[in-house]
Design a protein around this nucleic acid. Sequence first.
DNA 1: TAAGATTGATGTATCAATCTTT
DNA 2: AAAGATTGATACATCAATCTTA
Lengths: 152, 152
Amino acid sequence: MTATEPARTRLSRSWSALAQLHGTIEAQVERALERAHGLSLREYSLLDVLSRQHECQGEPLQMKQIADSVTLSQSATTRLVARLESRGLLLRRLCETDRRSIHTGVTASGLALLTEARPTHDAALRAAFDAAAVDPRLAPLVRSVEKLRVPA
Amino acid sequence: MTATEPARTRLSRSWSALAQLHGTIEAQVERALERAHGLSLREYSLLDVLSRQHECQGEPLQMKQIADSVTLSQSATTRLVARLESRGLLLRRLCETDRRSIHTGVTASGLALLTEARPTHDAALRAAFDAAAVDPRLAPLVRSVEKLRVPA
DNA sequence: TAAGATTGATGTATCAATCTTT
DNA sequence: AAAGATTGATACATCAATCTTA
């Protein structure tokens, strides 16, 4: 009769591993981008999202769609976009058909910075995954993620 | 002759999915814990870590070990621990053998709150995973994570 | 009245510098 | 001099409230 705590669920343990993996990778990539290019990871992600939209000739993105794609609140997104706009990396303009919404697209200067930063990002990401693969607690998840094929 | 961007690596796409999954789950669980028990997710995680250490009769944890387990910087950990200490949920005391380091353990009151919050946490976690499984971009990763068996 | 976006108030995370003990 | 922990300065995320257009 041991008065044990309720057992930790399997899902909780998986979630802890996921959170830990995410946290350690995020920290490493963030530092690499910040030092080499003065970009936070969120700023990089935003440029990346906008550039892919630009490349595939899609419509410029609205604030709300951006918020979803970088997993930020709408208000945080407003400020993120404002920061990058003031650095000349992207443009905002009112949507013609619905003047409540705002369209955002990357500038040439934003594309240039992104192109410069991408190798840094990819290398740091690779290194962070490799480092995590050594941790026995994270290794199985790392393997799963690396096997993953996410649709573009 | 299309001047294409360098292709997004497979690892980058996987990482995006991982970040997005992490972000959406974190937001949902955070809100549930905050509303029902006035605990942030980090605060919950800290209590959880300490309680498991307590349960398995292990040594109380040092600040640095705590920082690792909740993926926070040392200074953020100092503040996190200070907040919970001032709420009476954990105790700090100087380590006898090495007076540079500090040992931290959960209190009865902390355990009680944790026990109360755990069902909220687990239910929100379950719901968040289920919601993510519907998103075609996240579904494969969700399945992988749910199949995972993380060693305790 | 609702949707999209922004602003104000507040909390907490990070980096760099510092303090104490080893 | 280095390790563990903390503090000060600063940046950014969230919630709630507000503004504009539909």
